[in-house]
């Protein structure tokens, strides 16, 4: 019993811990929302692994931006990473359409090469770059409160990293809201989108651009692999609970709170890296959804099968 209480109150025991963990919580929340919104459309378009590929492919861009500007500030890193991400996407597309390679092979080939390039650049300039290699893979959201504060007109507004993530989160939300119809139609039925005159290729590039944006913004906190969990798990878990896209998108926001809260508690209790525990929390939330969800959950499906077998013929296809 006492261990449960420690689990629940541990991160919030002292005022210092509260202010420290609250910043992490906010950061995790913002990262989760941005990733989930982009990830919903990415997974609906069956591009999940492209998300993985692009998130690895941005590494050389980040390293080069760091080498050129010598700082870890977000903007140049974002430019570099976005360029690298776009280059990665374009070369996957080129290899896939212009050579004999299948899309999956083109993807695997491109992103590993890009990632290796980034690693070699890092290795060659190890003395100039203070990027922890392991941090690239799973991020260090626990150190976010150490970031410098943001001063505007002499006023201290709080942590800079959280502010920039916040802007990106709002930007993503606005874009999702604004382009909702276009994204819905292009994901569901490409031919209809074309006949509405929607520039489907540009929508695709735009989505990839947002993907790169979100990955870059979250890469410092959660790393290039966990970002995948935060993109794909929310929409997939929620698809077992809701049948309409707007419901899924709205509840992504609610889910993000659970993710970051659960992540912090788990990490505090077990001494795990926070980003990995957020991803683990996401998996823990996914499992009951997948089993018990009312819309196609496994156990519900079994139950229905036993109760009225005739549902088989119209629900399977």
């Amino acid at each position: 019993m006492s261990s449960i209480i420690t689990f629940l109150t541990g991160p919030w025991a002292t005022p210092e811990l509260i202010s420290w963990n609250f910043q992490i919580l906010v950061m995790g929340f913002l990262v989760c929302i941005s990733c989930a919104l982009v990830g919903t459309f990415v997974s609906l378009r069956r591009m999940s692994l492209l998300g993985d590929a692009i998130s690895h492919g941005i590494l050389p861009g980040i390293v080069l931006a760091y080498l050129f500007t010598g700082s870890l500030s977000l903007f140049p890193m974002w430019i570099g990473a976005a360029l690298a991400g776009i280059a990665c996407g374009v070369s996957i597309q080129w290899l896939h359409t212009k050579t004999r390679l299948r899309e999956d092979a083109a993807m695997g080939l491109t992103f590993t090469t890009f990632f290796a390039l980034g690693m070699v650049l890092l290795g060659l300039n190890a003395e100039n770059i203070h990027l922890d290699v392991a941090c690239i893979l799973y991020g260090e959201i626990g150190l976010i409160p150490l970031e410098t504060d943001w001063y505007l007109f002499g006023k201290n507004l709080g942590n800079q990293a959280i502010w920039s993530m916040g802007f990106i989160c709002i930007f993503t939300q606005l874009a999702t809201f604004f382009f909702y119809k276009i994204l819905l139609v292009t994901s569901f039925d490409l031919s209809l989108a074309k006949s509405l005159g929607i520039p489907v290729n540009w929508v695709q590039y735009g989505l990839m651009f947002f993907l790169a944006l979100v990955v870059v913004a979250s890469f410092e906190s959660v790393g290039v692999i966990m970002v995948l969990a935060m993109m794909i798990l929310p929409p997939v878990s929620l698809s077992f609970l809701f049948t309409r896209l707007p419901c899924i998108l709205w509840s992504c926001i609610a889910l993000s709170i659970f993710y970051s809260l659960g992540g912090i508690h788990l990490a505090y209790a077990m001494d795990f890296p926070i980003s990995a525990s957020i991803a683990l929390t996401a998996v823990f939330i996914f499992l009951p959804c997948c089993l018990l969800g009312s819309k196609g959950g496994l156990l519900i499906g079994l139950f229905d099968l036993v109760k009225k077998p005739q549902i088989e013929d119209c629900s399977t296809k």
């Binding site: 591009m47 995948l228 794909i232 997939v236 890296p273 990995a276």
Partner: peptide, 23 residues
């Protein structure tokens, strides 16, 4: 056995197992 598409299933296993390993 579920409506999850192969690419999403791979992404879930990839990131989920990886997170577990890191932890």
């Amino acid at each position: 056995h579920t409506k999850i598409k192969t690419d999403s299933a791979m992404a879930i296993v990839l990131s989920g197992f990886y997170a577990l390993g890191i932890c």
